[in-house]
């Protein structure tokens, strides 16, 4: 029996059938199956315990916490769905939620658009491995560092401001309250594009070059090649990337906090997303912590991820192309 067979009990059945023993209930098991079953719980239990204690347990506690009012110490008061009602009524949460959607769809859309564009350009480019490394670089540098750098790039009198003024473009207060979130979106696109371009390029590398040669013989331009060859053949990878982006976009925190926050303070509420809202409710506003409200916000984030991932999987589902 091979290792693969060990992982797939169903395949062991013919072999097991040849050497069977009768159990008390009349069911016949091979000694190997019985031994394997004996080992099932000892092997599963430690992992299951870790999963329950460190993941399922805290998640369920968060759900329970969202139904209570609690300051992190002292008594906990059950308030039912009150925290969720407050979230819906809180303009700051509604704005934070909208910002989160902007990050998922706005920054995400732009990230994928640029990544597709770079994929098309890089496919035929000389030195594309070097270019890919350079594009991936922002993903290696901690986003806190990039966020701080981003702040100094865009502040008044900074390099971006100087270039804008130097080229005669209208002066823009990039770090002003009215533009701050837009700059954050640009920053998120910039830091994420390299990552997704790299994944998409790895998928493109698997596409047989003769398909592109066929396209060239047929006189297809770059866009047609992308539409009729590249995109269909990397569709599954695009789907995985979309799921990855959705999950990471909902959790975006440190870039906004480090870029727009200062002197140990939370940034202006105009740039909060749900992750910052959750943090602010629990820890950062300086007043009595609202763990219940923070937990409710976290549950909403989890639900948002769940719904979006299901929708993306449904939307992206199609028969994969074999090649």
């Amino acid at each position: 029996m091979t290792a693969t067979d060990t992982l797939r009990p169903g395949r062991a059945a013919p072999a097991a059938r040849r050497r069977t023993t009768a159990g008390p209930g009349g069911i016949r098991h091979s000694p190997l199956t019985a031994r394997r079953r004996k080992l099932f719980w000892p092997l599963v239990l430690p992992a299951a315990a870790v999963y329950v204690v460190f993941f399922a347990g805290p998640s369920l506690f968060t759900l329970w916490l969202s139904l209570n009012k609690w300051a992190g110490a002292g008594p906990m008061t059950f308030t039912g769905l009150d925290n969720y009602r407050r979230l819906l009524q809180d303009p700051t949460f509604r704005h934070s939620f909208t910002n989160t959607l902007w990050i998922i769809f706005g920054a995400g859309g732009l990230t994928f658009l640029v990544s597709f564009g770079l994929t098309m350009v890089l496919r035929d480019m000389k030195g594309r491995k070097a270019a890919r490394s350079i594009l991936f670089f922002p993903n290696i540098v901690p986003s806190v560092v990039i966020a701080i750098l981003w702040g100094f790039l865009f502040q008044q009198g900074g390099p971006v401001d100087s270039v804008t003024k130097g080229t005669g473009l209208p002066a823009t207060n990039w770090l002003g309250q009215e533009n701050l979130f837009k700059v954050i979106m640009i920053g998120l696109v910039w830091t994420s594009t390299g990552f997704y371009t790299t994944i998409l390029m790895a998928a493109v590398d698997q596409i047989p070059p003769e398909l592109y040669e066929d396209c060239e013989l047929a006189g297809a331009n770059a866009l047609q090649k992308f539409r009729h060859v590249t995109l269909p053949l990397m569709w599954d990878v695009v789907g995985v990337c979309a799921v990855l982006w959705t999950i990471s976009a909902v959790k975006v925190f440190e870039f906004i906090y480090a870029f727009a926050g200062a002197a140990g303070q939370m940034p202006d509420t105009g740039v909060w997303n749900t992750a910052l809202y959750t943090y602010g409710e629990a820890f950062a506003s300086g007043g009595v912590p609202r763990y219940g409200s923070a937990a409710a916000s976290a549950v909403v984030m989890l639900a948002l991820v769940g719904v979006l991932v299901v929708l993306i999987r449904r939307f992206m589902r199609r028969d994969s192309v074999q090649y």
Binding site: P91, T92, Q177, D268, T269, G280, S285, G286, G287, V288
Partner: peptide, 17 residues
């Protein structure tokens, strides 16, 4: 910041800026 911290953070500060 102690007695009305949420008001201060969510209502006052954004408008004040």
């Amino acid at each position: 910041k102690e007695t009305a911290a949420e008001w201060y953070t969510k209502v006052f500060l954004p408008l004040n800026t």
